[in-house]
């Protein structure tokens, strides 16, 4: 294998780590609620801004991850339980709900944009020395980012496999029909999913800024398609699926970037989402009405 390919795989693994943190969260949220929540991207942005502001206040380093997680939980709760659930109660269709989440995205994104004066903010974080591994090059920080992703994955898997709430959550995410039939109380579990996904989105935002060292009002929105692609490719509701899909997408987009430049790598990332959605048209299997139950 040429060194360019191997290096791209290295970059891809770092990207995949950031994508997977967000994708695990989206996968849980989407798997449980069935709401295609586009506003998830802004939670990422808010998490990144939280880290930026924390740095301005003198809180530096990996503490920012915790701050990001907190901000993510609050933002997701407000969006999910505050806004989307209110609309879902009005018995709106899937299109109306995605529309509302898009409108929320628009409002938050441009509010941040209006407040910050349309700037790109820079963040400083010591990236450490370069380490070589099987022909790939990682900075210390990048290795730590991979560590955060692996840590989040392991923690989440433990939660889903070992605790009672976690088991119920997994059951609902993977077989909502069955779970409802078995009488698992879904509303509490949905709340847990909102909190977890919010924390993950916030962390993803912070890790993003630690890696790229810049943030703008559009950061999360630009990043969202990759994350959605990973969550849906890995089957909504499946955390390990999201991680595997993130790896594939991270590496694929970096390979395209190596060959055709970043413009085409963005196109490739978006293209993967389109293909994934076309390949999993969801709900069609019932053949009757394309009705999908929404729980919020």
């Amino acid at each position: 294998m040429s060194s360019v390919v191997v290096e791209s795989i290295g970059f891809g693994i770092v990207d995949a780590s950031i994508i997977s943190i967000g994708a695990m969260g989206f996968s849980l949220q989407f798997g449980l609620t069935n709401v295609f929540n586009i506003a998830y991207g802004t939670v990422l942005t808010l998490g990144a801004f939280a880290a930026y502001l924390a740095e301005q206040w003198g809180v530096v380093g990996w503490y920012d991850v915790l701050i990001g997680a907190g901000v993510g939980v609050i933002a997701t709760w407000l969006i999910g339980k505050g806004i989307l659930a209110t609309f879902a109660r009005r018995n709106l269709g899937l299109f109306e709900l995605i529309t509302v989440s898009l409108a929320v995205e628009l409002v938050v994104q441009y509010s941040v944009d209006a407040a910050d004066g349309e700037q790109l903010f820079s963040y400083s974080f010591d990236q450490g020395r370069a380490l070589r591994f099987l022909g790939m090059v990682f900075t210390v920080t990048e290795v730590e980012i991979i560590g955060v992703a692996v840590g989040a994955f392991v923690l989440l898997e433990c939660l889903l496999r070992l605790t009672k709430t976690g088991k119920a959550l997994r059951a609902v995410a993977e077989e909502p029909r069955l779970a409802r039939a078995c009488g698992i109380p879904t509303s509490r579990i949905v709340n847990v999913a909102w909190v977890l996904s919010g924390a993950l989105a916030g962390v993803a935002g912070v890790v993003y800024i630690i890696n790229s060292l810049t943030v703008s009002a559009f950061t999360g929105t630009d990043f969202l398609p990759l994350l959605l692609a990973a969550a849906i490719l890995g089957r909504a509701g499946s955390v390990s699926g999201a991680v595997v899909a993130s790896l594939a997408i991270g590496i694929a987009t970096q390979l395209v970037a190596a060959v055709g430049g970043t413009g085409y790598s963005t196109i490739a990332g978006f293209g993967i989402l389109v293909l994934v959605l076309l390949a999993r048209p969801g709900g069609v299997t019932s053949g009757l009405a394309l009705k999908t139950e929404v729980t919020l």
Binding site: L94, F95, I98, T99, L273, V274, G282, G283, T292
Partner: peptide, 10 residues
């Protein structure tokens, strides 16, 4: 034929 929200997203 597909879910309305998927179609919108595509």
């Amino acid at each position: 034929r597909m879910r309305a929200d998927y179609q919108a997203a595509i």
